[in-house]
Write a protein that binds this DNA or RNA. Structure first.
Length: 363
RNA sequence: GCGCUUAUCGUCUAUCGGCUAGGACAUAGGGUUUUCAUCCCUAGAAGCGGGGUUCGACUCCCCGUAGGCGCG
């Protein structure tokens, strides 16, 4: 079979390609090119998906492909990345939300346009594999692909893939889903890629300490920081620099810890509260996408993750409209941030995910 | 104008005649991390000015200065 492998140049994707080649597949490395220099980011040697260091990562991917003896294709997608990831990212922050660009990038770019564009260029392949720590399993009885957590609980990346469709999942392989990171590193050594394994890897979003370079001067519009009773606490640097639950960088010194409780774009206000004041009993999510293609029955109980690495909480789901759902938590949760992906799990299985809405009732 | 009271790290404050002046928040650095946060660790950072009592004062007394409260 011919398998395209999304290669970043890091150890996970390199081992993925090596494993598939060793199994006798014809492997083609694909690497997205998304950096077009349109944002001013100095090349500080730091690693990330978006930034001038992309040239270095591309070279690493090419080098790995060459050593594996496989073809490697660079797919230019900067324009699409701007349109599909960066623009909505900026719009979300300006609307007082906290977007998750990785979820969008997987859904639209890596498992979408990357494959479309490669095929448009005449590259033919039967499957697409990545080094994500997650698993798929075909459910013959229902004729659907299931998406499961990675075996390595610490590395599980299923959260980021919760919005993939059946069409996408049917052509995808995740060879690392059943492994733990240590095994992958061991395989890298075995495969002769000790240098890659030793390399500092980072899959940050952008090559910058903060997102500030993605925004304009007009986004740095100061406004009031108030407490939950409306009392003034200070000034913020522009609403795009904050997220619900944030504590650091606020410059607000009171007796105890204070967290961002809400962002109010309509008044350009940041509201802060005590930790207790930032808990929520539930939330509403929109544009929910279900892995199996069909929603679960109303009243379903499942586990929901409100952000990557969230321990998760039992929740009760009720449909509001065809794509929006009410999610009631078994216990109030801290810092439910509008814009983040709420991902639903039934045990090891990913049911789907949607975007957390601002809680209308709490404004 | 009179009386009372307060005056410590950037902020809010703790203690005691022996202090290498403690904590929290904030800040900085680090850890964790394919989003944003959270969280954890570490660090720097203070006794309003002047005089006096005392072996010794941040702590007691006086004056000044500044803030608060009450009475004008």
């Amino acid at each position: 079979m011919t398998v395209a492998v999304g290669m970043s140049g890091g150890v996970d994707s390199t081992v993925t390609a090596w494993l598939l080649a060793r199994q006798g597949h014809e492997v083609i490395g694909l690497t997205m090119q998304i950096w077009d220099g349109s944002v001013s980011l100095p090349d500080e040697g730091r690693s990330g998906c978006y930034g001038p260091g992309e040239a270095r990562d591309l070279a690493f991917a090419r080098d790995a492909a060459q050593r594996l003896g496989i073809r490697h294709i660079t797919v230019p997608l900067a324009e699409a990345y701007n349109r599909c990831v960066l623009d909505p990212f900026r719009a979300a922050y300006r609307a007082g939300r906290t977007p998750n660009p990785c979820v969008v990038c997987n859904q639209r770019m890596k498992f979408g346009l990357l494959l479309d564009e490669a095929r448009r260029q005449g590259i033919a392949f039967d499957r697409f594999a990545t080094g994500h720590y997650t698993r798929t399993e075909f459910d013959a009885a229902h004729n659907v692909q299931r998406l499961l957590r990675g075996v390595d609980a610490a590395k599980d990346q299923s959260y980021f893939l919760a919005r993939l469709t059946q069409e996408q999942l049917r052509q995808v392989w995740f060879p690392l889903g059943g492994m733990v990171k240590a095994e992958v590193v061991r395989l890298a050594h075995e495969a002769g890629f000790s240098d890659v394994a030793a390399r500092e890897e980072s899959q940050d979003f952008i090559e910058s300490e903060s997102y500030a370079p993605l925004f304009d001067a007009s986004d740095n519009r100061p406004g009031p920081i108030v407490d939950t009773a409306g009392r003034a606490l200070g000034q913020h640097r522009g609403i795009v620099h904050y997220t619900v639950g944030q504590r650091q960088g606020m410059g607000i010194a009171t007796g105890g810890r204070r967290y961002v409780q809400a962002l109010r774009p309509e008044t350009n206000t940041v509201v802060m509260g005590t930790r207790e004041e930032v808990f929520r009993p539930g939330c509403q999510v929109e544009d929910v996408s279900w892995i199996r293609g069909t929603p679960p029955p109303a009243g379903t109980t499942c586990r929901v993750l409100l952000r990557y690495h969230h321990p998760g909480v039992q929740a009760h789901l009720e449909p509001l409209t065809d794509r929006a759902w009410q999610v009631d938590f078994a216990e109030p949760q801290f810092a439910v941030a509008p814009g983040q992906a709420a991902v639903f799990y039934d045990g090891e299985e990913v049911l789907g995910g949607g975007w957390i809405l601002p809680n209308a009732g709490q404004a």
